[in-house]
Design a protein around this nucleic acid. Structure first.
Length: 476
RNA sequence: GCUCCGUUGGUGUAGUCCGGCCAAUCAUCUUGCCCUCUCACGGCAAGGACCAGGGUUCGAAUCCCUGACGGAGCACCA
């Protein structure tokens, strides 16, 4: 990752994650802790996790999301030095608003949004702009006391009504919200700060030195700059990055879209393998580290980027290949009687580590192989770890030949499982479920263990139910 | 409409500030070969890019202008 700007000017690099707890994280959200957490490590800095939960209505917080997000950060391998919720800090925002009014930096306004918007677009002040501080104080206290309904009164920051960028003209700092906040502790507040005010105040109070945020907040620094000027504060260094899109997913990466699909049952949950979420990758056995590595490689450019899942897979494969045991899983098995040969197949647990020993798979007189692996009649195939067989009518006849037939005669090596003694398994993938049978030893793996199904790919063991074992496919 | 920002191979990225060492880095990807009782891992090789047009200059991916394309903001959302 590129160096952060102007690091020398600060004693310590202090950054913050500012998630909105309105749902579990999609993969795009993971970029924030991945990059900011990595910078924290690079500079031996400090990191705050601040839940920006100041909208009880439109972006209504989901009470479970607070912990789910902290859990996701932990899975990615980072730990915030401090965790706060903006909804616990409302009194602080009120205090700074009062100071701002004293400085002449804010006024209460009862224009409708529409009315004000028209005036603003013409660079014209509304009649409330010249209100004296005393009246503003009275009306702001009335806002705090909940004496107005939503839409009746706001507190605006007095910026520059003729600023050439209309986005910066006298923006709203506080508004009324009728809907109570879902958190018990914050449910009495009706006067809520807007993001630009809340975030601007907090960034200063927590001594944040470097802010990284999305291009959707490109104007925030300039907006907040007016408040910083009134208070004579220094604005932190700020970087903006573009949106991340991820190939390989049909589902749009947005909290609200995923929420709808989960609610309607089209997705089995936030960790459905088809969902572009942190929980989904986690259930598939993909390491948080792999996500972080792929995310940090994207850098922090302001243009929108496409993250290729193959990049995440490549990082993850690097992490797990050496330690993942090998196993056989036969999809849609075709049964073949085996005539002759050993009673037990003994493929290695890991081809690169003889010391880990071999698996022991009983043949039991018949095996299952995948339909595509059944050779034409009269042709041979090598059952991995067991030996060579010739397909004759409906049976596999053991031929006893040497391994050289694989090396020199191009006989294919295929995986197999006993027809009787095996583990029925459902492999959940992004393209849907695959059913089949795994070798008997798979029953001994615990939930969360990751194995490589030879010639198929890596998968995480999810659950051993009575009727079948469930595993989640990670990647080839 | 107003205001910002961006554009290097399929994807991401380095280089752009301080023009030449860039016929452009690294990773991923694709293909071929080698290794291999896996189509994994490993090894080798190949493929593929400076948005366009002008200008400045001995020399431009890098500087200037114009245009195209893409993105963002102008919310009592975050």
């Amino acid at each position: 990752m590129p160096d952060l700007p102007n690091v020398e000017a600060y004693d310590e690099v202090r950054m913050r994650l500012a998630p909105n707890p309105n749902g579990p994280w999609h993969l795009g959200s993971a970029r924030m802790p991945a990059v900011i957490g990595t910078y924290k490590e690079m500079y031996d800095g400090w990191m705050l996790c601040r839940f920006d939960d100041t909208d009880p209505e439109t972006k209504r917080p989901d009470l479970d999301a607070y912990d789910e997000i902290l859990d996701a950060i932990d899975y990615l391998g980072f730990e915030p030095d401090e965790v706060v919720k903006a909804s616990d800090r409302v009194e602080t925002y009120y205090d700074y608003a009062r100071d701002l009014i004293d400085e002449g930096g804010a006024y209460t306004c009862s224009c409708s949004g529409e009315t004000f918007s028209e005036l603003k677009n013409d660079a014209e002040a509304c009649p409330h702009r010249e209100k004296d501080a005393e009246t503003t104080h009275e009306e702001f206290e009335a806002m705090i006391d909940g004496e107005y309904a939503a839409g009746e009164m706001v507190l605006r920051v007095r910026t520059d009504i003729e600023h050439k960028n209309p986005a910066l003209r006298d923006w709203v700092a506080f508004r009324m919200v009728d809907t109570p906040h879902p958190r018990e502790e914050a449910s009495e507040y009706r006067c809520w700060p807007m993001l630009d005010f809340q975030s601007g105040i907090d960034d200063h109070l927590f001594g944040i030195t470097h802010i990284i945020r999305g291009i959707d907040l490109q104007d925030s620094a300039k907006r907040q700059g007016f408040v910083y000027d009134y208070f004579d504060w220094e604005y932190p260094e700020v970087l903006h990055w573009g949106h991340v899109q991820i190939d390989a997913y049909d589902v749009q990466m947005s909290t609200s879209t995923i929420k709808e699909l989960v609610d309607s049952g089209e997705l089995d949950g936030w960790d459905d393998p088809r969902a572009p979420t942190v929980a989904s990758l986690r259930r598939r056995g993909i390491r948080g580290e792999a996500i972080v590595a792929a995310m940090t490689e994207l850098g922090t450019s302001t243009s929108n980027v496409d993250l290729a899942m193959s990049s995440v897979y490549a990082k993850n494969r690097e992490l797990i290949d050496d330690e993942s045991d090998r196993a056989f899983f036969v999809r849609d098995g075709v049964e073949k009687t085996v005539l002759g040969g050993p009673d037990v197949g003994e493929p290695p647990i890991h081809p690169d580590h003889e010391d880990r020993g071999n698996r022991s798979i009983p043949v039991g007189g018949a095996v299952l192989v995948e339909p595509e692996d059944v050779p034409p009649n009269g042709k041979r195939v090598w059952l991995k770890g067991l030996g060579p067989v010739r397909h004759t009518r409906d049976a596999f006849e053991f031929t006893g030949e040497d391994l050289d037939i694989v090396r020199e005669e191009g006989v294919d090596v295929v995986h197999w499982v006993p027809a009787d003694e095996n583990v029925p398994l459902r492999l959940r993938t992004m393209e849907g479920d695959e059913t089949g049978h795994a070798e008997p030893g798979l029953a001994d793996y615990d939930t969360d263990d990751v194995v490589q199904f030879e010639r198929i790919g890596f998968a995480r063991v999810d659950d051993h139910a009575d009727e079948e074992t469930v595993a989640y496919f990670a990647h080839p």
